[in-house]
Simulated assay, not measured.
Amino acid sequence: MGYSRFDPGIQSRPAWNAGKAVGTKRPLTQKQIWAVRFFLDREGRLRDRALFDLAIDSKLRGCDLVKIKIDDLVSGAEIRTRAIVIQQKTGRPVQFELTADVRASLHAWLGCRGGTKSDYVFPSRVDRAGHLSTRQYARLVDEWVDAIGLRRAEYGTHSLRRTKASMIYKATGNLRAIQILLGHTKIENTVRYLGVDIEDALLLAERTEI
């Protein structure tokens, strides 16, 4: 049931996006990725480096990223090379790769973090049994982009979700592969999410000689 416009309890409640720039967030470039990593390494922020790296590799929505548990990423004493989670939005599984650099940052963080396999990888600082909130994750992303001189209005948590997907699409033009990696149910959602337009289509066509 939705809220009624006649409900006096919500008439004075501001919209969630009041005063905010809402729209597609830009993906990061390779240079920007390394700039964020340099900043986090310089500051000795093991958790944030692992969170940033996992966000890029997993291509997960924030609500799924913050709920990842140690058992999702660890097999025995090693970080998995591939992992799978059930998406909150669709209820469907999505698989993702964990590259060598990302496994290294996760290994460093988990070695510091400790805990059991049933614990969240990124615990809440308020409730250690809970997970990092999506709101806090968004604040961290704002801080990271600020640190490398980017505008918060143009970047956000979805920038990290889109980054690797956009790079793969530009390199291959394979929308179906991106659809699978992002866990989209429809290819149309992938087209809109990547911002594929007529210019992209023409560039791909020009690369193909018959």
Rank of each mutant, 00 (worst) to 15 (best):
I86S: 04
I56K: 01
R82H: 10
R103E: 08
P93V: 01
W109H: 08
Q87T: 01
D101P: 05
R92T: 08
Q32Y: 05
K67M: 11
R26F: 00
G195M: 04
R92H: 04
K20F: 10
S133Y: 08
M1L: 14
R37D: 05
K164M: 14
R37S: 09
A35F: 13
A165T: 10
D7P: 00
W144F: 07
E143L: 10
T99N: 06
K170M: 11
G149S: 07
R151Q: 14
R92N: 14
T99E: 02
I180L: 12
R37I: 15
V22K: 02
R49S: 14
G173K: 01
G130H: 11
R92E: 11
S159G: 06
S75V: 05
I33V: 12
S105R: 01
R176E: 11
I168N: 00
Q87H: 11
G19E: 13
L106D: 02
G183I: 06
G149P: 01
W144V: 04
R176L: 13
L65S: 04
G44Y: 06
H131R: 08
A129R: 15
M167K: 10
E143T: 14
I56C: 03
T172S: 15
I148P: 13
F39Y: 13
F122W: 09
A201G: 10
K31V: 08
R151H: 06
V191Q: 05
Q87P: 01
V94W: 00
F52R: 12
V22S: 10
Y193V: 04
S75M: 10
A35T: 08
I180F: 09
M1I: 12
R37V: 15
Y193S: 02
A15Q: 12
G62M: 02
P93H: 03
P8Q: 07
F39E: 13
A83L: 07
R207V: 03
E209D: 13
T190K: 07
T134C: 15
V66H: 01
V145G: 01
K69V: 07
P14Y: 12
R45L: 15
L132G: 08
E97V: 14
G111T: 14
H158W: 01
V191C: 00
V141W: 05
F6K: 08
R128Y: 05
R92A: 08
R61C: 01
N17I: 00
T99H: 08
D57V: 06
R176I: 12
R139C: 11
G111E: 13
E78F: 01
L150K: 03
A77N: 15
